[in-house]
Design a protein around this nucleic acid. Structure first.
Lengths: 136, 136
DNA sequence: TAAACTGTAATAAAAATAGTTACAAATAAA
DNA sequence: TTTATTTGTAACTATTTTTATTACAGTTTA
């Protein structure tokens, strides 16, 4: 988490959910999030690649949800945004001559993997529909 | 997580646990982690403030665990390192005129708080002793 | 054919992290 | 009591990551 992209992606998805199938432009969404439209379009690339949204080019184009909001779990969204690097992101290069240094990365990765699995399980208990319903 | 400081802190604590009460210098620990000794000392400030370690100044000084390894949970370590900002770290400033933008930060914070609580619960199931025992 | 979009690359700016240097203060041991 | 070793800390620099901007080609509608 701790990742601005998750917030942006979720914001986009809530807007699209509220739009009820109407196409929203990246400019419009950028106005709600208050960021640059190009960032929205970049985030849409990822959301499309993961099957969350569909986009239509050209005049009157825009984006819409690719599936109903109760089929989109927050865990899968989290995973799509995190991509490769897991919780860790520790790219230390500890001393291989030290007994602890030699093995710490492996053990940290194990710990991170286990912990992240739980985090995703937890997030998967909630869908976009649940989150969207938090709004009045 | 996603925080290099957690990795450094845990590395320090494992070294201190393995040292069985013997004082370790920041230079020695920096050599195992392969980072600058000043970073170790900075991290020790935090570990001291949270009661995890004790340090002794002057010649032959160094640090040692302030309590036994099975009294130090990984959740409390995580919390001490995260300090104030939680999972979120989203400092977006969304459009208050948009119905979604107006409330998203509140809902994101709620989501992050709930999720992080679970994360910490999960980490709290493991102590430094458990983690340290992963090493041969 | 003009207007309104998306898609994308290239670049720049800003923010967050990590690393370095320098030195005062404390302590132990010669 | 002097020297060596170590912590504590401030100030600064460098690096990396994140975010923002500019620019423009390609698509689609009216």
């Amino acid at each position: 988490m701790n990742n601005g992209r998750f917030a942006i992606s979720l914001h986009i998805l809530v807007l699209l959910d509220k739009a009820k199938g109407e196409l929203l432009s990246s400019d419009y969404m950028a106005g709600s999030i208050n960021i640059n439209p190009v960032l929205v379009r970049k985030e849409l690339v990822n959301l499309r690649e993961h099957g969350f949204v569909l986009s239509k080019e050209g005049k009157n184009g825009g984006s819409t949800l690719a599936k109903t909001a109760n089929k989109i779990t927050l865990g899968s969204l989290y995973q799509s945004v995190k991509g490769n690097y897991l919780l860790g992101n520790h790219k230390n290069d500890p001393n291989p001559l030290c007994e602890v240094g030699r093995d710490i990365n492996r053990h940290l990765n194990d710990l991170y993997d286990e912990t992240e699995k739980r985090l995703i399980d937890e997030l998967n208990k909630q869908t976009l529909a649940d989150f969207s319903n938090r709004f009045a």
